[in-house]
Amino acid sequence: MNRRTLEERLFKILMVGSVCIVIGSLVVIFGLVVINGASSLSIEMITQTPRPSVPGDPPGGGILNAIVGSLLLALPATGFASLIGIGIALFLQNDFLHPRYSDIIRFMLDVLWGIPSIIYGIFCLMIMISIGMSSSILVGMIALTLLEIPIITRSMDEAIKMVPKGLKEGAYSLGSTKIETAFRVIRRQAFPGILAGILLGLGRGIGDAASILFTAGFSNRLPTSLFDSTATLPTMIYNLYSTPLGQSKAFAAAFILLMIVLIVSVLSRLLTRRFKKHIIK
């Protein structure tokens, strides 16, 4: 009896200890980014592009090009990936495909979700070089789209799985076709989950550096066309982190990135709750 209570107590201490480690390390990271980021954030930082440094003079300007570049890459990529993702997610239901095949496709999507994002980067780079393009917004966008498709599809798929069977059967018994049922009934019922999936994809896409490191390139100017290379917030951080003069910009970029991720996450929660009101229980 005594040994058992001792064990109980020991593990409770270990548990509290590990929670403290987890929360502590995460609070430290958050705190570092917020404190350093907020102090280096200024109007100049978010309204100007970087000025090339003159020797002896600290490089000035801001990170406007990275903010614009990130949005230009991640928003359209999320849009495309969502369109493709919702099609696949609806198609993976049993009405269209034999469960055996849909399970294989689900497994492949899981692996695609799991492979390192740098593989998407060099995959797109190889194709880009072989058709004679150079690094640009367009290629970066394609890389991000490919990266986001499995994420968005699988989370939508999980939401669609939750739709009660009766709803589908009701639609069929009224004479709806499969496509009508999928897009008018199931899509609506699973909408909160679908939205959460899209926002998850956006959050992952906007923060990923490895896939756009070579495909989107880097530039200190604002992009003017789809074929320009551009900086993004993650690649900006990656380019500047080791230079002492660039660290304030890196922290400003990290702060903005963190805020975007935070906003996306809060938005996802609020919207999901809002749209849950409309679904049939």
């Binding site: 923060g207 990290a254 990135l257 963190l258």
Partner: peptide
């Protein structure tokens, strides 16, 4: 969801 560059 925090991007890995931020951790880095």
């Amino acid at each position: 969801g925090v991007p890995s560059v931020v951790y880095g």
